[in-house]
Computed example of a mutant assay.
Amino acid sequence: MRVLVTGASGYVGSRLVPALLAAGHEVAVGARDVEGIDRFAWADRVERRYLDVEDTVSVHLAVRDTDAVFYLVHSMGAGEFLHRDRDAAESVVAACAYAGTGRLVYLSGLVPDVAPGDLSDHLRSRLEVEEILRAGPTPATVLRASMVIGGGSMSFEVMRRMTERLPVLTLPIWMRSRIQPIAVEDVVRLLLAALDGEPRDRTYDVGGDEVLTYSELLARFAAVAGLERPQVPLLFAPVRLVGEGVAVLTGIPRSTIGALVRSLTHDMVCRDDVVRRELAPGTAYLSLDEALARSLAGDTAATSPEGDVQGEADSDPSWVGSTRA
Rank of each mutant, 00 (worst) to 15 (best):
E54I: 09
H83V: 07
D121K: 12
P116Y: 01
S75I: 10
A78E: 01
V63W: 01
R103E: 12
L110H: 07
V63M: 02
Y71D: 15
A94I: 04
Y71F: 13
E80P: 08
R64A: 08
R64N: 07
F81R: 05
A89W: 02
V59N: 02
R103G: 10
T66D: 09
R103F: 04
S58T: 15
L110Q: 10
Y98F: 02
L107D: 11
M76T: 08
V73E: 09
H60G: 15
L82R: 14
G77P: 00
A99Q: 04
D118S: 06
V111Y: 03
H60D: 13
L82V: 12
L123A: 07
H122D: 12
H83Y: 10
D121N: 12
V57N: 13
H122M: 14
D65Q: 14
D55F: 07
G117L: 10
V53P: 07
E80I: 06
D65V: 11
G109D: 02
A88G: 09
L123S: 07
V69M: 08
L82K: 09
V69N: 03
V105C: 11
A99W: 03
D118R: 03
V59H: 02
D55C: 04
Y71V: 15
T101S: 05
G117W: 04
L123C: 10
R86I: 01
G79I: 15
T56Q: 15
L82F: 09
V92S: 10
R64F: 00
A95Y: 02
V59K: 02
A78D: 00
G102F: 01
S108A: 01
G100C: 04
Y71C: 15
R64Q: 12
